[in-house]
C-alpha cells in the first residue's frame, strides 16, 4: 500500500477533535477545555437564533469548527433554503471545509432523516457528482463526502463502494471524509475486507477521518450506533489509514449514551496517541 500522500487540498491538519454535543455545550463554552477542534451537526445550527447560535458563537470564538451535515441528500435533490442556511452557517464559523454523506435521505418531499444507501451505478454516480459540484460552487469552500454505514445493497450495483466513492471524488474534484468505523461496519455487513476499501481510496483527497463505536448484534451484524467506545478493529484500521494518508484531521463521534466530557476527551487522547505512533 502506498504511504503518505500529499493532500490535494490546502487544508490545515486540525489534530484530533470531538463532536460538539448538547450534554457538553455548557461545560465547553464556559470552561474552554483543551481540545484541538470541534465538529458540529449542521442542521442543529441552521436556525434563526436562540440557544443553538449562542453556544455556536462561543464555541467558534475559541476553537476551529467544521460543520458536518446529514440532510444534504447528495443522491437526491437539492433544496435552495437548506443550502442558503448551510452557507450562512459555514460563514458564521469560518469553516475550513464542510461535509455530508454519500447517501440520499428522502424523495417526493418526504424526509426519512436516515442515511439511505445509494445504488452504485454510473447514472447515480454522475448525479452525485453534479450535486457535489453545485454545492461546492455555492458554498465556496472545499466539500468532503463521507462514506456511510449501510445494511443493504442493490441488485444492480456496478462497483464496490470504494470505487463508487473514489470515482465520485475524482469527477467532482471534492475531498473525502473517511469514516473508518463505517468501513468496519459495512465490511462485516457486506462481506468485504476493510483494507481493500482503504487501498481503493485516493488518499490525497482525504481531509478528515471519523472514529466511532458501533453495536454488534448476536448474529454478528453491525449497526452504526455511535454509542460505544471505539473498538479495536476500528483503531487498527485508523492506524493503517494514518500510515497511508498522513497527518489528517481526526474526529471522534459519540452521539448516543454520550459519556462524560472527561471520558470523551480520553477517547480523543487515544486517537492522538495512535495517530502520532502511526506517523513515526
Amino acid at each position: 500500500m502506498a504511504v503518505r500522500q500529499v493532500s490535494k487540498f490546502d487544508l490545515p491538519d486540525l489534530g484530533v477533535g470531538v463532536g460538539f454535543r448538547v450534554p457538553h455545550y455548557r461545560h465547553v463554552v464556559e470552561t474552554r477545555p483543551e481540545m484541538d477542534w470541534f465538529e458540529v451537526l449542521s442542521e442543529n445550527f441552521m436556525v434563526e437564533g436562540g440557544s443553538p447560535l449562542y453556544h455556536l458563537d462561543h464555541l467558534s470564538a475559541h476553537y476551529p469548527v467544521v460543520p458536518h451535515g446529514v440532510s444534504l441528500s447528495l443522491g437526491g435533490d437539492g433544496e435552495p433554503e437548506h443550502l442558503r442556511r448551510l452557507i450562512a452557517l459555514c460563514r458564521r464559523v469560518n469553516a475550513p471545509w464542510v461535509s455530508d454523506h454519500l447517501c440520499f435521505v428522502g424523495a417526493g418531499g418526504v424526509q426519512t432523516h436516515d442515511l439511505l444507501p445509494l445504488p452504485r451505478t454510473r447514472a447515480v454516480r454522475d448525479h452525485v457528482v453534479r450535486r457535489i459540484r453545485d454545492v461546492t460552487d455555492a458554498i465556496g469552500i472545499p466539500f468532503a463526502v463521507e462514506n456511510p454505514s449501510t445494511y443493504v445493497a442493490h441488485v444492480d450495483d456496478e462497483m464496490p463502494e470504494w470505487a463508487f466513492l473514489a470515482e465520485i471524488a475524482e469527477a467532482a474534484d471534492c475531498a473525502i471524509l473517511l469514516d473508518v468505523n463505517n468501513i468496519v461496519v459495512s465490511g462485516v455487513n457486506h462481506g468485504f475486507e476493510p483494507m481493500d476499501y482503504l487501498a481503493g481510496i485516493p488518499a490525497e483527497r482525504v481531509v478528515q477521518i471519523h472514529l466511532a463505536g458501533h453495536t454488534t448484534l448476536p448474529s454478528g451484524f453491525r449497526i452504526d450506533t455511535h454509542d460505544h467506545p471505539v473498538p479495536d478493529p476500528v483503531w487498527a484500521l485508523y492506524a493503517a489509514a494514518i500510515r497511508r494518508i498522513g497527518p489528517v484531521s481526526t474526529l471522534v463521534e459519540w452521539d448516543d449514551n454520550i459519556p462524560t466530557w472527561e471520558r470523551l476527551a480520553e477517547e480523543a487522547a487515544t486517537a492522538r496517541r495512535i495517530r502520532a505512533e502511526s506517523l513515526s
Binding site: G76, F104, G108, T112, D114, L116, P119, V152, V188, N189
Partner: peptide
C-alpha cells in the same frame, strides 16, 4: 428507486426485491 425506498422505510409498503442482502442478513 428513491420513492420506492421511502415507501418501504416509512411503512407504506412496496416490493423490496431491488435490494440485495449480505452474508448475515
Amino acid at each position: 428507486w428513491r420513492e420506492r425506498w421511502v415507501d418501504l422505510v416509512t411503512g407504506r409498503g412496496g416490493d423490496p426485491s431491488f435490494l440485495a442482502g449480505g452474508p448475515i442478513k
